[in-house]
């Protein structure tokens, strides 16, 4: 595993549903990547993680490195793009013109 680089968002899976969750600025978990709080440095993120870790509600709290450009936030790694967008997420460069996975 490569070392995590800031900026990051905090993510986990919901214990009840398994859904992907992001920690929002309001101190709540949300299911939408766009609602995630971005942490510019790892220390601040670590403090937040210590506060959110609730073993009764979520599984696998982790830091997800993101890229921020022109105020658009997106995960750095394609795995996290797929986690955020769901199966069939388009992460190959360019359009490929193939049918997406039906969900």
């Amino acid at each position: 595993m490569a070392k995590v680089q800031a900026p990051v968002v905090i993510s986990a899976n919901c214990l009840l549903t398994g859904a992907v969750l992001y920690w929002g600025p309001d101190g709540q978990w949300c299911t939408d990547f766009a609602g995630a709080q971005v942490y510019g440095d790892l220390d601040a993120a670590a403090v937040a993680v210590a506060a959110v870790t609730d073993p009764a509600a979520v599984i696998g709290v982790d830091l997800v490195p993101v890229r921020v450009s022109n105020e658009v936030v997106e995960p750095r790694h394609y795995r996290e793009v797929i986690r955020a967008d769901g199966p069939g997420a388009s992460v190959f460069p360019g359009e490929r013109g193939i049918v997406r996975v039906s969900v």
């Binding site: 398994g18 859904a19 797929i82 199966p87």
Partner: peptide, 21 residues
Amino acid sequence: TEEEFKPLRLMNGVYLQLHAY
């Protein structure tokens, strides 16, 4: 705990995947 529960759920075919169980 999740660590203890995991082998028990796995015995019953329940995985945690990327987006869901």
